[in-house]
Design a protein around this nucleic acid. Structure first.
Lengths: 260, 260
DNA sequence: CGAGGTCTTGAAGACGATCAACAAACGTGG
DNA sequence: CCACGTTTGTTGATCGTCTTCAAGACCTCG
């Protein structure tokens, strides 16, 4: 349970083109970017660093001077309660600009941790500031990303407040299916479920024991099939129905968006 | 329970200066704005309209072409589940730019309704678009507002997932105290609690019955005193402790911010 | 004064928590 | 390659918070 402080090497990338590619892909779900904007993004000096599973990336209360872009791996945001309980606020996959909002909010109201081994690229706030001064359209794309973040929080609030354990877990599995699909981590409706049952419980406000039993129930109903970490969803529509899942909140589309 | 469609008159304000004043006050908690920015805001053509209690202001699924600024009254955002359950996502007080994010997200992933009688000023998205083209600092201030929205959602997720009913209600009462204080609606740690117990339940994921009993418990403990709608908090620190309340997430400050 | 919304109370039951123990899987080093 | 410790998953039993259903009191306002 205790996140520890690693000491992985810090790598300076002169051109973060490969890394930024991911971000561009995500932002272009919203608006097509100009060549100048992409070029600007590509030349930003990034610090890339690896984190071990369970390692804390940013602490609650920090005042970071850069925002974290998840390049590979699986991460989460969370808050800790005085009594030692934990609430996971979000899961993150490759391409997510996890704490972009720290550019605006200054102080972190939550922590950030690796779930699997992760590589994180840190984007200096001064580069984001520069974007807001020069590129209105790119600024809107980043702003959109933060707004989308909020839409996901809202859907999670519905789960936490009004769905029972079965629907909650089904819903989360649907969300992960779509989000992992968007970054090519799904084959045949099957993906690796990286978070542990304890992680799932902390995300859904449930005990580990109850997550375990509810997962068994879903397996028993044939809504999911699992071997080891890998989850397969034989009938996506059926799982969506069980979850009351409506994908509109994710604003996922197949292709890039038009100009705006 | 059924929100109805009213037919209040629509008022065109040529100069929305008085209305915009509120927004400026809120944004300046983050950054001090320039005269040109304030002037631009003041000349935006607003549609002002009144809504009756329980009236729906924007429906889930809508594609609004303007964002709603709450001028007076008490409103909320919510989602409805197929089974008829409701999850309230946020409460709003005067000065809140309730669905500013609809400028970016296009489709509403939730509804918006009046709780008390409300007056709403609608700001055209094209005016916001114009701001992003011309005023980087003001754009950041609006972006900040959306990010702050997210911070409040995160704190609510902690309540929904990990706090028991007593702490949840205490937490909400603390939050409302501070937010109403910021707009001058509190005197002597006392304010009007506009939402009904059913509303509170829908916000906290609790049944009305349990809200009622928990409120009684808080009264019994002397943590709150109420006469009619009005709630008084005799010892704010004590209530905060009961709630596990840390106001950092609200980013409330007494005075305006420095330039940025 | 009546009607609808809101608040309050009681009783019964369900969903999920907690506690405790064990099994299985995993990674690491000898 | 096996032994070992640690993390993760699984199971059973008991308990408690909160839900649901139902009914009555209160209050506000036309």
């Amino acid at each position: 349970m205790e996140p520890f402080e690693g000491s992985a090497a810090v790598v300076q990338l002169e051109t973060g083109a490969e890394v930024i590619e991911l971000l561009i892909r995500k932002l272009e779900h919203h608006v097509a970017l100009g060549e100048d904007e992409k070029a600007y993004l590509a030349q930003i000096a990034l610090q890339v660093r690896e984190y071990e599973p369970r390692e804390t990336i940013v602490h609650e209360g920090d005042h970071p001077s850069e925002s974290c872009l998840l390049v590979t791996g699986f991460a989460c945001r969370f808050k800790l309660l005085p009594e030692g309980k934990r609430q996971i606020l979000s899961f993150h996959v490759a391409g997510d600009f996890i704490d972009l909002h720290s550019f605006l909010l200054k102080q972190m109201d939550h922590g950030m941790a690796a779930i699997s081994k992760c590589t994180i690229a840190k984007v200096p706030h001064r580069s984001i500031q520069a974007i807001t001064e020069q590129f209105p359209r790119l600024t809107r794309a980043l702003w959109w990303d933060v707004a989308l973040d909020g839409a996901i929080f809202r859907e999670w609030m519905v789960s936490l407040g009004r769905r029972d354990a079965r629907a909650q877990i089904a819903h989360l599995l649907c969300e992960l299916l779509l989000r992992l699909q968007a970054v090519g981590l799904v084959t045949d409706n099957s993906y690796e479920l990286v978070p542990t049952q304890t992680d799932l419980g902390d995300a859904l406000g449930l005990s580990t024991v109850h997550v375990n039993r509810t997962l068994q129930q879903l397996r028993g109903e044939g809504l999911i099939v699992s071997e080891g970490r890998r989850v397969t969803i034989p009938d996506v529509e059926k799982l969506k129905t069980a979850a009351g899942f409506n994908q509109a909140y994710l604003a996922v589309r197949s292709g890039p968006a038009s100009a705006g």
